[in-house]
Nucleic acid binder design. Structure first.
Lengths: 345, 345
DNA sequence: TAAAATAAGTTAAACGTTTAACCCAAATTA
DNA sequence: TAATTTGGGTTAAACGTTTAACTTATTTTA
């Protein structure tokens, strides 16, 4: 493979000239430029990263950090975000180095190797991580951007899901189908995303002038997995059997809801409508497939990369917060009550 | 951040000595070593990749290539492989640079940027890729290893699924449960993996002394998606209604089979048993969940990284082929006919 | 016409390592 | 004792770029 020296020799110029041509510096005349470019093509020259890195003190790499937990999640949520980031990184000529950290990362632990070896120009943190890793990275004075995580300070650019409007959209979809007794099922309500979905639900009910009682329509569990959805809907229906529609705070819980209703012979959507949030793969294989609120994971990855690129160009770039919009996906697990023939009394 | 110079000054030795200590070269006395190591700790020194790369002519990176198609697959098959590779790479102090190429990659197209920029020491290719990309990479004289793809020559280390034994295992599992009329459903039989699963099926039937007629038990479609499974089982049951168990060549088709049987009110596993191959997430949300043959994607990623590390150490390393074993996962979609009470005639 | 500005290129230092070649003192050998 | 080996380190070149500072020739200005 040819180096800048080979090109210089071929074009009969100094290596500096070659470099200047490559960087389209205007000090070089058009003819020389042409001659050099011809040599570059002839020798199939591409500047080597290794040389460039050393002198420019830039690696051309971005670190992408997430926890083992998230890394090993069965639903490929963060994986998708990563793929979006990787794709967008090409537009900026960056490479992404992905690594995971233990979810119980401690200040005593080594920071990721790419930080120690100065092998990244910036770091993207995806999902919830221990604060200790953040303070570690701050020590190395690296630009940081977050995606799907509320960072501990306002200093950082961040990409978040617009959970409030998603919660509203799901609820309003049910309201438009003439549902009035709408249950909301939450797991860990302390989680910011879940809480915001709940807020969206409340706002939508409020705007529509629909009454709701927290006692009847919210059921708390500590986690948001399938079994919690199963248990939650069970409790909810025990204390309120007028419910015609259920909005589960995420698809994992929604699937638990579906399992419970199936077992009890309660037909979806004929007896009870169900809508979830996240739009994961598993939704498609339910019968009927689950209506849900799509979270654009790939696009989130793209957005956070854009923020990072901004930040690298201009360290004082505004620390933007981006809320990505969600989209309602109707797959038939919601019944339109307007069309339903009323049962004889 | 401190450099080798800072350490040298601190320890009052030359930078060469620091380097030799870092590399545990035996030319340095124990005392000097200790002094240098103390300085290294004090200054929190870690050799910079950029410096090291340039002189060693090694990047410390491995390229990971797959096609857009595979990259965007809804089932995270190659993603899992990638994650395994990334994880294992840490043990060898390598980073993985992931990139995709168009599935219609042409010789005229640019090779991935990390190749042009000499930013990788070797390349791992995952899944089926156009041969043109392989010959392109060969030009750059980079070590290549394959995973889940039969490379066009014997020159390369490769990690493959042991499809034949998987096909046998699935079939033998059905045979053990006393099934005798076992249908096999294949999509694209021209695909090496599918064909090998079919061979496993045939061998198992043969060993068990069970007769089978290709006309009755094989149904061809061009693809292996859900709708093909749906269509295939429909045709299969039209020409043969003695079948008590169906082995679908992959889970996507198996899910199509399940959908068809559900629609027709044919109970799984009471009327017909079903087993798939791949063990994808969606299997769990079926009712009953699908029994399948688990493919250890993560482990495949690990294995291919090991082969790559071997290859980088020793360019003449044996070009091993590794067949990773699969594992039968029983989730209740198969009925044990031995226990079934015979219907009164 | 002399001085100043400009255009177009070159020189050389620097980035942070690794490592072959070298050096010197002390120990060993003949 | 003189020559040789060994141990323990240092010197300096090299890797492939970028870029500030410099040079030289030409053009512009006063």
């Amino acid at each position: 493979m040819s180096t800048i020296k080979d090109v210089a020799k071929e074009a009969k110029v100094s290596i500096a000239t070659v470099s200047l041509v490559v960087h389209k510096h205007n000090r070089i005349s058009a003819e020389t430029s042409k001659r050099v470019n011809k040599a570059i093509k002839k020798l199939n020259y591409h500047p080597s990263r290794s040389g460039r890195r050393l002198v420019s003190q830039k690696t051309g790499n971005i670190g992408f950090i997430l926890t083992d937990d998230h890394f090993l999640r069965s639903e490929p949520f963060y994986t998708r975000i990563f793929l979006g980031t990787e794709f967008e990184a090409r537009n900026y000529e960056y490479y992404i180095l992905l690594t995971t950290i233990p979810s119980n990362y401690d200040v005593k632990d080594h920071p990721p190797r790419f930080i120690l070896e100065k092998n990244v120009d910036g770091v993207i943190i995806a999902g919830k991580v221990p604060v200790s890793i953040i303070s570690q990275i701050e020590k190395y004075n690296l630009p940081i951007a977050f995606v799907d995580f509320y960072p501990p300070s306002n200093e950082y650019p961040v990409v978040l899901i617009d959970n409030i409007s998603g919660g509203m959209a799901a609820t309003q979809f049910l309201i438009k189908k003439n549902h009035k007794n709408i249950g909301f099922i939450a797991g860990d309500i302390g989680h910011p995303s879940i809480y915001d979905r709940f807020r969206g639900y409340k706002m939508a009910m409020d705007y529509a002038g629909l009454d709701f009682s927290e006692l009847n329509y919210i059921v708390d569990e500590n986690y948001t997995a399938r079994e919690n959805g199963y248990n939650a809907v069970k409790k909810l229906l025990e204390i309120n059997n007028d419910i015609t529609a259920i909005f589960a705070c995420n698809d994992a819980m929604a699937i638990g809801v579906v399992q419970f209703l199936n077992e009890k012979g309660i037909s979806i959507p004929n007896d009870i409508s169900v809508i979830g949030f996240d739009d994961v793969e598993a939704d498609l294989s339910l019968d009927p497939p689950l209506s849900s609120v799509r979270v654009p994971k790939y696009e989130m990855g793209i957005e956070v990369m854009k923020l990072m690129a901004d930040l690298l160009k201009n360290k004082d770039a505004t620390k933007k917060k981006i809320l990505v919009s969600v989209e309602l996906i109707d797959r038939g697990s919601v019944m339109d009550l307007t069309l339903k023939i009323p049962m004889p009394a």
